[in-house]
């Protein structure tokens, strides 16, 4: 077992464990912190795949922005939640069972694929050609339309979020 494999196993186990803790913690704030741990684990997995750019974006966007947003929201709404004794709904065993079966199905499905056991070899160091990626995003023959649509989506989400969360005193009650 190579060193990289060992690293992968450790990271994967930590990531999955934190993932479980995200959905199992009783305190919301703990959940959020575990989420950061999971996201970090995913970033490291990206790095082991030699996708350095996305590893960094993962840290910046997910950990830097999204997690912070979530924590802010928790702080704004926590008062009620701290008194809760349990965080899951009553019949939680059914979703759990479903998740386990679904995992089995996915694994079984994947195992029938011929390339499933393919090895990921080390790529040349400069393989992640960011210039080509960037050009493709603004190339009319490439992905400029999805790119522009995505920017509009972000803008709309921004405006929408502000509008929804704004307090409208004149309309209250």
């Amino acid at each position: 077992m190579s060193g990289l494999q060992v690293v992968f196993l450790i990271v994967a186990v930590v990531t999955l464990f934190s993932g479980v803790m995200v959905v199992a913690s009783r305190k919301m704030m703990h959940s959020a912190l575990w989420l950061i741990m999971t996201l970090l684990g995913v970033a490291i997995l990206f790095a082991t795949l030699q996708a350095g750019f996305f590893a960094i974006v993962q840290v910046l966007v997910y950990i830097g922005a999204i997690s912070i947003l979530i924590i802010f929201t928790l702080m704004l709404t926590r008062r009620v939640m701290d008194e809760e004794t349990t965080q899951v709904i009553k019949g939680w065993w059914l979703p759990a069972l479903m998740a386990v079966i679904l995992f089995g199905l996915l694994a079984g499905l994947l195992a029938t694929w011929e390339d499933f056991q393919g090895m990921l070899n080390e790529l040349p160091a400069d393989v992640e050609n960011l210039a080509a990626f960037g050009t493709a995003l603004v190339n009319p023959a490439g992905y400029v339309i999805p790119f522009e649509v995505a920017s509009i989506l972000l803008l709309a989400a921004l405006v929408g979020a502000i509008y929804i969360a704004m307090e409208r005193k004149e309309k209250a009650e």
């Binding site: 994967a12 993932g19 998740a99 994947l110 990921l120």
Partner: peptide
């Protein structure tokens, strides 16, 4: 030198954990 399958299985597991969370939290 890591098999592709390891990533796929790890991702599937993470997905199912997330699914459980969505359904039960």
């Amino acid at each position: 030198m890591i098999p592709l399958s390891w990533y796929l299985i790890a991702a599937a597991a993470l997905f199912c954990i997330g699914l459980f969370g969505v359904l039960s939290r």
